[in-house]
């Protein structure tokens, strides 16, 4: 199996990205390219569905960090949902849970984006 597979779908104007596998220094370029492609095509609201993400190292966090200002300046955001315990621990340890909106499920993320959460 490949170290990382990335699927992207569009739901109500939101790009839902589903990384599957491991985001580390080896695979981060693929993750970064996929994020940059979305931003370059004008998709500034991105929901990272982490259900199938086994782990993310600081290289992956740096990729998200590198784009957060651009998407927010354009009225968008990068949100996260379905984080496994160990992935959440990485985000939380670095204070990223204060920087990013994290939701238990995709449905709750969409509710919040619709102003209901």
């Amino acid at each position: 199996m490949a170290d990382l597979l990335i699927q992207v779908r569009e739901v109500d104007g939101v790009a839902v990205m589903r990384p599957e596998g491991f985001i580390n220094a080896h695979t981060v370029r693929m993750f970064e390219d996929a994020l940059e492609k979305l931003v370059a095509s004008g998709r500034f609201t991105i929901l990272l569905d982490c259900q199938a993400l086994n782990y993310i190292s600081s290289a992956g966090l740096g990729a998200i960090m590198g784009l957060i200002e651009t998407v927010r300046e354009n009225g968008g955001d990068i949100l996260l949902c379905n984080l496994h315990e160990n992935v959440f621990a990485i985000f939380d340890t670095l204070g990223f849970t204060q920087l990013y909106r994290v939701f238990p499920t995709e449905a709750e993320a969409f509710q919040a984006m619709a102003g209901k959460g």
Partner: peptide, 22 residues
């Protein structure tokens, strides 16, 4: 410092922080 990091996000320096915390 994670608190400063949150106020002034930037790339880099996170790996050592994770190592020391974990």
């Amino acid at each position: 410092d994670p608190k400063e990091y949150v106020k002034h996000p930037r790339k880099g320096g996170l790996g050592l922080l994770l190592m020391s915390r974990f």
